[in-house]
Design a protein around this nucleic acid. Structure first.
Length: 459
RNA sequence: GUGGUUGUAGCUCAGUUGGUUAGAGCGCUGGAUUGUGGUUCCAGAGGUCGCCGGUUCGACCCCGGUCUUCCACCCCA
């Protein structure tokens, strides 16, 4: 059988059918991004580990794919005692690069590095693969595409509103019903503050984030395990179950958080954001969800997550505001917001809900039968004329094998028309076109081949 | 990283409580009068039963390791 043809865990090949569907998704996303005034950039697959490490929390660091140094990297570390070295210390010696884990951190690096050339506010989008050494699972791969839109260098909440519009637009064009959940890290921070548990802020938010999954008892248990005081847990309960629409929730929160400056700030931000949202009529449902936390450490303000209403697969899109990401790279006072669409999950959802447009793009319109050297000139002449027509895909079967075989090929390839340009046709100046689905044959004049074929294809 | 699960022809799967030449359907290849497919009929090719090692007179089936699949946890798109 030869050498093994397997590919690494969590990676996939994409055949023609999948590629056409994936490109359908990318095209819609790209077009929407452009419409809202964002411009494309790309960054390398590899970054220096110094730019990647420490941005995604401890867990995130573990999931980074590292790239081995080139050359005889061990010879340079001979001065160290390799026999007693820990794998962590060894790693530092032999790898300095890693595959990107997301697009936001490389983007922040890009902004700082190119700050002189960039005019702020800078609106960009980026559609590229990212890699995570995670264990594969439903909707999770080790290599997957993200489609990021970010605006950096503006504090305005209008940007958050614009992103929500973009999300609404993308998913409505793709036909995916969805719910956009919005929250604000400042509100969560405020809650931790009034619970007097600021230090366990991350633990608390992570626990709350699981409410839907593990229920209130599970959340409480987890907080207890992390050392959150019973008093704080009790105080948290009514906040978790705030009832009513977004406005009344915000009103109650204002009361609860009145002693937290940061908390009130978060509430006010949400108030203005929702006042913008209420101006528009969106297909997506937008709601304030206090249980939304989002793990990525660098978010500081609004956080956003999108879920499909008709299929459970984790979030299709997520993001938020990050105030300090560029300051890590030495550029202070530049705030950014952005969201990231997950192409593979969108693909999976569309596949399951059967949302891809009907077939048609996937196949070739016309295949000329190859009759052999005596007649091929006539076929080539006709085909070459057809190639000048926009929107018609056509080819000649390359080898003069049995007609039966050629027909069978056209059949399995889903070709719409088979064209016969042989001796008989050449004498009369016509070409026989056979419509494969019906078997009907009709003659087309070579003098007016494009016009006649167009007419045929319309029927 | 933790726990479970999967791996037999190109694909979907049978199979033997360990015993000589491992099966089906679909697909593929060739044929059924020379310029016509999707139906039918006939014939044929294709597997060191994921990989490595162990137990055994003997293993595809038992044991260990490893890789892979799918799932849950962790975390996340």
């Amino acid at each position: 059988m030869g050498v093994s043809t397997s590919i690494p865990k969590g990676t996939r090949d994409f055949g023609p059918v999948e590629m056409i569907r994936r490109n359908y998704i990318f095209d819609i996303i790209r077009t929407v991004f452009r419409k809202y005034g964002y411009l494309p950039i790309e960054t390398p697959a590899m970054e220096n580990l110094t730019t990647l490490l420490g941005k995604y929390g401890e867990e995130g660091d573990k999931l980074l794919f590292k790239v081995l140094n080139s050359g005889d990297y061990l010879s340079k570390s001979n001065q160290h005692n390799l026999e007693n070295i820990t794998s962590g210390a060894l790693t530092q010696l032999i790898t300095k690069k890693g595959l990107r884990y997301d697009l936001t951190v490389p983007f922040a690096r890009y902004v700082v590095q190119h700050r002189a050339e960039i005019t702020f506010p800078f609106k960009r989008f980026q559609i590229q693969p990212v890699w995570r050494a995670d264990n594969p699972q439903k909707g999770r791969y080790r290599e997957f595409y993200q489609c990021d839109v970010d605006v950096i260098g503006s504090d305005s909440l209008f940007n958050e509103y614009e992103l929500i519009q973009i999300i609404n637009c993308v998913f409505s064009e793709l036909g995916i019903r969805n719910i956009i959940k919005v929250n604000n890290r400042k509100i969560l921070l405020g809650i931790a503050e009034i619970l007097k548990e600021d230090k366990r802020f991350i633990d608390i938010t992570k626990a709350i984030d699981k409410l839907e999954k593990i229920g209130i008892e599970g959340v409480n248990r987890e907080m207890e395990q992390k050392g959150v005081s019973g008093n704080a847990i009790d105080k948290l309960q009514p906040i978790l179950f705030l009832e009513g629409d977004t406005n009344t929730k915000l009103g109650k929160l204002k009361e609860i958080l009145k002693n937290s400056v940061i908390g009130i700030e978060g509430v006010k931000e949400m108030e203005t954001l929702f006042s913008y949202i209420n101006l528009a009529s969106l297909k997506s449902i937008v709601e304030l969800d206090l249980t939304l936390a989002r793990g990525l450490n660098y978010y500081t303000g609004a956080i956003i997550e999108v879920k499909a209403t008709d299929h459970q697969i984790g979030s299709l899109c997520g993001g938020g505001r990050y105030d300090d990401l560029t300051s890590i790279f030495g550029l202070k006072g530049v705030s950014g917001v952005g969201v990231s669409f997950g192409a593979e999950r969108i693909y999976d959802v569309m596949q399951i809900l059967d949302l891809f447009p009907g077939k048609g793009e996937e196949n070739v319109d016309i295949m000329f039968v190859n009759f052999g050297s005596n007649e091929e000139c006539y076929s080539i002449k006709a085909l070459t004329k057809l190639w000048k027509a926009k929107g018609i895909s056509a080819g000649l079967y390359p080898d003069p094998i049995k007609i039966k075989k050629q027909m069978a090929y056209a059949n399995t390839m889903n070709i719409s028309f088979v064209a016969f340009a042989g001796e008989d046709e050449e004498k009369k100046g016509v070409i026989t076109f056979k419509k494969m689905v019906s078997g009907d044959e009709s003659k087309v004049r070579i003098s007016n081949i494009i016009g006649d074929v167009r007419k045929l294809m319309k029927d």
